[in-house]
Computed example of a mutant assay.
Amino acid sequence: MRVVSLVPSLTEAVALTLPGLLVGATDWCTHPAGLEVTRVGGSKYPDLDRVLALRPDLVLLNVEENRREDADALSAAGVPVRVTYPRTVDEALTELADLLRDLGAPAEPEWLALARRAWADLPAARPARRAVVPVWRRPWVVLGADTFAGDVLRRLGVMNVYADHVERYPRPALDKLRARAPELVVLPDEPYLFTADDGPEAFPGTPCALVSGRHLTWYGPSLAEAPAVLAAQLAAPVVHPG
Rank of each mutant, 00 (worst) to 15 (best):
G20L: 07
L114P: 00
A107W: 02
L143M: 04
V141R: 14
P237Y: 04
D49G: 09
A131L: 14
R130S: 14
V186T: 08
L18F: 05
L156S: 05
S222T: 07
D70H: 14
A53L: 13
A149T: 11
L216P: 06
Y162H: 07
L10A: 06
A196G: 11
L187S: 08
D57W: 10
D197Q: 15
A125G: 03
A235T: 02
P182G: 07
A228G: 12
V7G: 07
L58A: 05
A113M: 12
L6V: 00
W218A: 02
V132W: 02
A124P: 02
Q233K: 14
R138D: 12
E201P: 00
L61K: 04
K44F: 04
E12T: 00
A235V: 01
P19V: 09
V133D: 04
M159V: 11
E91Y: 00
A105Q: 04
G199A: 05
R101H: 08
L16G: 00
H240M: 12
T38I: 10
P237H: 05
L174Q: 08
P221R: 00
P19Q: 13
F203V: 01
A228L: 15
Y219W: 01
L21R: 14
L6R: 01
G150S: 05
L114H: 03
L52I: 02
A231K: 14
D121G: 08
G144F: 04
V4G: 08
R154N: 14
A173H: 13
D70C: 05
L103M: 13
E201F: 15
T17P: 00
W119I: 15
A71W: 02
P46E: 01
E69Y: 01
E183Y: 05
H165R: 07
S222E: 08
L16C: 08
E110P: 02
P207H: 15
F194H: 07
V135F: 04
A224F: 00
L184S: 04
L216D: 02
A209L: 11
L58P: 02
G41I: 05
L193I: 10
P134W: 13
H240V: 13
R138Y: 08
R101G: 06
F194W: 11
A181I: 10
E201G: 10
L21T: 13
D121K: 10
D146F: 06
R178A: 10
N66M: 11
R214I: 01
A235N: 06
A235D: 03
F148L: 14
F203G: 04
P200V: 05
V40G: 08
L21Q: 13
D121E: 09
A209V: 03
L177R: 12
D72G: 09
L187K: 07
R116H: 09
G242K: 11
L174H: 08
Y45S: 08
M159F: 10
V132E: 14
A209H: 02
D121Y: 07
Y45W: 06
P8D: 06
A25W: 03
L122C: 12
P170D: 15
L52G: 02
W136R: 10
A113T: 04
D57L: 11
D175K: 10
P200I: 09
E225I: 00
G78Q: 08
W119G: 03
M1R: 13
M159W: 14
P86L: 01
V161L: 15
A53M: 12
R101E: 15
T94E: 09
H215D: 01
A125T: 12
D121T: 09
